[in-house]
């Protein structure tokens, strides 16, 4: 851990119990976010990205969820040990979150102004007029035109892109140190996606804060990330800076993801995608969870849990087979 670390997660385990099943959704995940950087958490649907993010804010519904172990260190305290009242002072104030579905994530019966204003006044003692001015400034910052009028609008009166901008304005309300964005562009159409991505890049620079950006789209990662964590079936399988991940991937899963990325040079050829399906977290294969789909798998892969292998300069991959085979 470097001393400019903002938040670091160690060996986080989150399980979900239902009747007889026991889903290990997040199964020993470690990562850190440093000050003023954007990191990406990337992986296929169901690998535990959202669960990891919600754990940071203490928003896992328990039951059925259960934090089975680990530490989340932020400002010299372990967030997992804070009580609810202390956690409320962190949420929205120091760490804010933008969700995937802007339509369902905004309350349909309150105005935009009410919902953003609430995020401000809960953490800061301000006069109503000051809150209003703050809201207008925030809406301007996220690129919404005629913000004073928009404050009186309800979520259904805005377009998808505008709604997500409102969500971002809400997250920015208290100038947090970290914004967690959970697939914020997945529900939007392509041109709007690009604009929102651009918005994240610019606010990260202007406000010099950290962004934890969650996505399953490597194209987005290339656009925005300083560093990348690749996640598979509840564990981190590879970590590196963007260049290492895109030009020197060392884990078969990352290589598979890259090969399935449509790129200009390969246009017209058939898309390669990883055969097989993401394992159900309640019935995960033993050993390396990727072994049923891995082209390099050897018999020990299904028995031994793979260790992280260090390729130097912070580049780590959880595949001893490729590492020993002349990494």
């Amino acid at each position: 851990m470097t001393n400019d670390s903002l938040i670091s997660i160690h060996d986080l385990k989150v399980y979900f119990r239902s009747n007889s099943e026991h889903a290990r959704a997040v199964d020993g995940v470690s990562f850190e976010v440093r000050r003023e950087e954007t990191i990406c958490l990337v992986g296929e649907s169901g690998c535990g990205k959202t669960v990891s993010a919600l754990s940071i804010l203490g928003l896992i519904p328990t039951p059925p969820g259960e934090i089975a172990g680990g530490q989340i260190l932020f400002a010299d305290q372990n967030l997992l040990e804070l009580n609810e009242a202390d956690m409320q002072k962190i949420r929205g104030n120091h760490i804010a979150m933008v969700f995937q579905e802007p339509l369902t994530s905004l309350n349909p019966v309150f105005t935009i102004g009410d919902q953003i204003g609430e995020a401000i006044s809960i953490h800061k003692k301000l006069e109503a007029e000051a809150v209003r001015e703050n809201c207008i400034q925030l809406l301007t910052d996220v690129g919404i035109s005629s913000p004073a009028q928009r404050l009186k609008d309800y979520p259904h009166q805005l377009s998808g892109g505008q709604r997500q901008r409102v969500m971002i304005a809400m997250a920015l309300a208290c100038d947090p140190d970290l914004i967690i964005a959970d697939e914020p562009t997945t529900a939007l159409d392509v041109t709007v996606q690009a604009q929102i991505l651009q918005l994240f890049r610019s606010i990260q620079k202007i406000r010099s804060m950290s962004v934890l950006y969650i996505t399953h789209d490597l194209g987005v990662v290339a656009n925005i990330a300083d560093r990348v964590y690749v996640m598979y079936a509840g564990i981190i399988t590879e970590h590196g800076n963007t260049a290492q991940i895109f030009h020197d991937a060392r884990h078969p899963y990352t290589q598979g993801l890259l090969a399935s990325l449509p790129s200009r040079s390969k246009r017209g050829t058939r898309l390669h995608s990883i055969p097989g399906a993401v394992p159900n977290p309640a019935h995960k294969p033993g050993g390396c969870p990727f072994h049923p789909r891995c082209p390099y798998a050897i018999p020990t892969c299904s028995k031994e849990y793979p260790q992280m292998c260090d390729y130097g300069q912070g580049h780590l991959a959880r595949c001893p087979v490729l590492f020993e085979g002349g990494g």
Binding site: L57, L59, E84, A85, Q88, K89, I90, R91, G92, N93, A96, M97, F99, E101, T104, S105, L106, N107, P108, F110, E118, A119, I122, H123, M167, M170, A173
Partner: peptide, 21 residues
Amino acid sequence: QDYIRTARAKGLPPEQVHYKH
């Protein structure tokens, strides 16, 4: 609903989450 999660993620106290949102 998702917007309840949003309300909690803002740091609202439980009373405001339940009785307002």
